[in-house]
C-alpha cells in the first residue's frame, strides 16, 4: 500500500466510511429502490472528507514530501477504493439474486429495479457522477463540501429516478431482466457503466489536480 493511501485510511478516514460500505446489502431489499445503496456508500465517503477538513488534513498532506497534485491522488485513491469495495459486494449480492433467488416470489413481484448487471452498470454511473461532482467540486476550494455534495444529491436522485423508470418504457423491459435473461444486453449496459465510471473519474481527477495546483491553502 502506498504511503498516501495509508494516510487516508489511518488518519483521514472515518469509521463510518467503512461501515457504510455495508449499504451495498440494500441490493437484497425487495420493493425498494436499491440504487440508493450507492448514495449511502458515497455519504460515508463524504463523512471522511468532512472530518478530514476539521483535522487540517489537506494542509498536513501538502506539507508531506509529495507533489501538491499527489494530495488529490490520495483522496481519489481512497474514494475509488471504497466505491469498488461497495461495488464488489453489490456484484456478489446481485449474483446471489440472479442465481439462487432468481425465482423468489418476493423479487418477482418487485415493480422497482431488479438486481442485475444493468443495476450494477447504473451503480457505477452514480459512483462516477459522485466523483465528478463531489470530488471535483471539493478540489475547487479544498474546503467547501456543502455545495458539491448537495449538487451531487440532486443529480444522484434524478439519476436513480431515471434508472428506475427506464424499464417501464415500452421496449425497455429487458433492462429489468431476471436471472440470466437478456444477459448479452445486460452485460453491455454494465460495460457501458464501467466505461462511464472510468471516464467521469479520470476527467474529474485531471480537473481536480489542475484546480488544486492553483488553490491557496
Amino acid at each position: 500500500m502506498n504511503a498516501l493511501l495509508k494516510k487516508e485510511m489511518r488518519l483521514s478516514a472515518q469509521l463510518l466510511t467503512y461501515l457504510f460500505i455495508g449499504f451495498a446489502f440494500m441490493t437484497m431489499l425487495p420493493g425498494y429502490p436499491i440504487l440508493c445503496g450507492v448514495f449511502f456508500i458515497n455519504l460515508g465517503i463524504f463523512q471522511s472528507f468532512q472530518s478530514a477538513r476539521e483535522a487540517n488534513d489537506i494542509v498536513f498532506s501538502a506539507l508531506l514530501p509529495v507533489a501538491k497534485r499527489d494530495v488529490v491522488r490520495g483522496k481519489y485513491q481512497f474514494s475509488v477504493m471504497i466505491e469498488l469495495c461497495g461495488f464488489a459486494l453489490m456484484a456478489i449480492l446481485t449474483l446471489v439474486r440472479m442465481t439462487a433467488l432468481s425465482d423468489a416470489a418476493l423479487y418477482r413481484r418487485n415493480a422497482l429495479m431488479n438486481a442485475n448487471p444493468f443495476y450494477l452498470g447504473c451503480a457505477l454511473v452514480v459512483f462516477g457522477v459522485f466523483n465528478l461532482i463531489f470530488l471535483g467540486g471539493f478540489f475547487r476550494t479544498a474546503y467547501s463540501l456543502g455545495k458539491p455534495f448537495i449538487t451531487y444529491i440532486i443529480v444522484n436522485f434524478l439519476l436513480i429516478g431515471i434508472a428506475e423508470a427506464l424499464h417501464h418504457f415500452p421496449g425497455m423491459e429487458a433492462l429489468n431482466a431476471f436471472g440470466f435473461d437478456h444477459i448479452g444486453l445486460q452485460l453491455l449496459t454494465l460495460l457501458a457503466g464501467a466505461m462511464l465510471y472510468i471516464l467521469l473519474t479520470v476527467m474529474s481527477y485531471n480537473k481536480a489536480c489542475e484546480n488544486f495546483e492553483r488553490i491557496d491553502l
Binding site: A3, K6, E54, D57, F60, L63
Partner: peptide, 26 residues
C-alpha cells in the same frame, strides 16, 4: 521540515498514529 505554532493536525488521533503514518513518507 516545517512547524507551526498555530495549527494542530488530526486533533483526535493519537500522536503515535500520526507519527506512524508520517514516518512512512520519509
Amino acid at each position: 521540515g516545517y512547524s507551526t505554532g498555530t495549527v494542530s493536525w488530526y486533533p483526535r488521533k493519537k500522536i503515535s498514529e500520526i507519527v506512524e503514518v508520517t514516518r512512512s513518507f520519509y
